[in-house]
């Protein structure tokens, strides 16, 4: 579904990603992890076509990303970015309907099919109750639910998420990841960048760790989510224990990191 080869991405003169190689197969659910500034957001933006590649190649579903029109790209990729703002004057329904833009022609407006897709997406994202609210009056968590709904209205083949649930409370976060897992079970490919190690380990069978613009680790969660790897990556003491219900590995911080660092 996604094939990235030797990808370099620059912000102005500063290179942020230094040669990323990454392949994600259709139907995978992958968590993208890494410390602050490791390049998670940059990678998601590059995959979504928001940042141009300085060199290297990105293929989405076998097609070169650079060769796709905006519309073609939007039909393949649905993306939820962090810190997205909702403008004043639009209802949630109108906002979700905008996800259907790429599905409509220049001359035809939104049709019954689009309204139906928007309604279904609202339902799946558990945002139906918000449908008639003004988008600008929503809380941060509600906005993220609505944006997820919009991404679902846009398409479910490939979902890219950048901290898409970080503004939600714990219960909503679990609900959102339950939804992602459900979508994944239905055939969606999902790549989600997030900070929350344990949420990633709980839901994603495969994890990719970025550090300083390079892929540090990439593999099945059970194999790479180890104390040694996490200590290396985050440069602090971390213990890993099994989740009491699912048995998935979960990371636990150890107090005293500051004293150890000051040594």
């Amino acid at each position: 579904m996604i094939r990235v080869t030797k990808l370099h991405v620059k912000y102005g003169r500063r290179e942020v990603l230094h040669g990323i190689d990454l392949t994600i197969a259709r139907g995978e659910l992958v968590g993208l992890l890494g410390p602050n500034g490791s390049g998670k957001t940059t990678l998601i933006k590059a995959l979504a076509g928001l940042l141009p590649a300085a060199s290297g190649r990105i293929e989405i579903g076998g097609a070169d990303l650079g060769g796709l029109s905006h519309r073609e790209r939007a039909l393949k990729i649905s993306c939820v970015m962090q810190r997205a703002e909702a403008p004043a004057g639009f209802s949630v329904r109108e906002l979700v309907l905008m996800g259907r833009f790429a599905h409509t022609g220049m001359l035809s407006g939104y049709g019954p099919l689009d309204y139906a897709a928007a309604a279904a997406a609202l339902k799946d994202a558990q945002a139906e109750d918000l449908a008639e609210r003004q988008a600008s009056e929503l809380s941060g968590g509600e906005v993220q639910r609505v944006l997820l709904a919009r991404a679902l209205a846009q398409g479910r083949e490939l979902l890219l998420l950048d901290e898409a649930v970080s503004a939600l409370d714990m219960a909503r976060r679990v609900e959102a990841y339950d939804l992602l897992a459900e979508l994944n079970a239905g055939g969606s490919t999902v790549l989600s960048a997030l900070h929350d190690l344990n949420l990633a380990a709980l839901y994603c069978p495969r994890l990719v760790f970025l550090k300083a613009g390079r892929i540090a680790l990439d593999g099945p969660t059970a194999e790479i989510f180890t104390e040694a790897n996490l200590k290396d990556l985050y440069e602090t003491d971390i213990r890993v224990a099994a989740h009491p219900v699912t048995g998935a590995p979960q990371a636990h911080l150890v107090p005293g990191a500051r004293a150890a660092a000051l040594g």
């Binding site: 928001l50 990729i77 993306c79 997205a84 703002e85 407006g109 919009r150």
Partner: peptide, 23 residues
């Protein structure tokens, strides 16, 4: 008028408009 819907998308900001398929 032909591009009225695009104005809606532009109101979301450049990044979101592009994600939704707008040049």
């Amino acid at each position: 008028l032909w591009r009225a819907r695009e104005l809606d998308l532009l109101a979301l900001g450049e990044g979101q408009a592009r994600l939704l398929g707008l040049n």
